[in-house]
């Protein structure tokens, strides 16, 4: 099923291009247009790249919802039910493909960022830890996306449902430090799932203070992943039961 999902991705390169192009465009915009006006106490590109990486992950994971919704509406699931296929493998295939695809697109975004002047100070071990954080985050988002894709009536609605996955990183420490935000917004930004993941990533790649962000990031990712997995399994079981 993973192989099937990967084939789908390779056959529609426009999705892949968009998944890479949008974060790169946002990176270029924030570095070159707003970067000179942002005051973050250092090189802005070094500050913003971890946020862009997660934005890329969010955007990429969102496409899993559209793929699942397409499968649910075009009748392929009924065909699979006539075959000796494990039910869960249909969804797992989408999720694994999403993780693989996102790690690939994230790598491309990091390469572009380095070309633009991003200078991480991480050693190989920290790079490995950073990739693990990204993978766990993508895994969690992919399961949530799959659940949203199953809830949606059609692929267009699925795309709309996942819009918040794209929007949440903006209201975090991705682009600006949270202490520059108004009090009411700061409390949300500091206690939402993306912020500890970004701070962990920033700490691993740039050597900044991580504190308890790593632990919070793991807890958030586990909670989101578990919620996504359980709800996706439940919805899928209900939708394919009759």
């Amino acid at each position: 099923m993973t192989r099937r999902s990967l084939k789908h991705t390779l056959r529609s390169p426009d999705t892949m291009v968009m998944t890479i192009a949008l974060p790169i465009m946002i990176l270029l915009m924030f570095v070159y247009i707003f970067g000179g006006a942002f005051d973050v106490g250092g090189e802005y590109i070094d500050y913003v790249v971890p946020g862009i990486i997660l934005l890329c992950a969010g955007f990429g994971a969102g496409t899993a919802a559209v793929s699942v919704s397409t499968d649910m509406t075009n009748g392929i699931i009924d065909r699979f039910r006539t075959m000796a296929i494990s039910r869960s493998s249909v969804l797992t295939g989408h999720v694994v493909e999403s993780v693989v695809r996102n790690l690939l697109t994230t790598s491309i975004v990091i390469v572009v960022a380095v070309a633009l002047g991003f200078r991480p100070t991480a050693d190989p071990l920290k790079w490995l830890a950073a990739l693990a954080v990204i993978a766990v985050f993508v895994l969690a988002l992919s399961w949530i996306s799959v659940a949203l894709g199953l809830l949606a009536r059609n692929p267009e609605a699925a795309q709309g449902f996942t819009f918040f996955l794209m929007f949440i990183p903006y209201v975090s420490s991705a682009f600006v430090p949270t202490d520059t935000m108004p009090t009411w917004l700061r409390s949300f930004a500091e206690h939402q799932p993306v912020t500890p993941v970004i701070e962990t990533l920033r700490g691993l790649l740039m050597g900044t203070e991580i504190g308890n962000s790593a632990m919070l990031a793991v807890i958030w990712c586990d909670a989101i992943g578990l919620a996504g997995y359980l709800s996706a399994s439940l919805i899928f079981k209900r939708k394919t039961a009759h």
Binding site: F34, A37, F38, D39, V40, Y170, V171, F175, V176, P177, T180, M181, P182, L185
Partner: peptide, 8 residues
Amino acid sequence: VYVFGGTL
């Protein structure tokens, strides 16, 4: 205004 305004 609210997210980037303080820094910008």
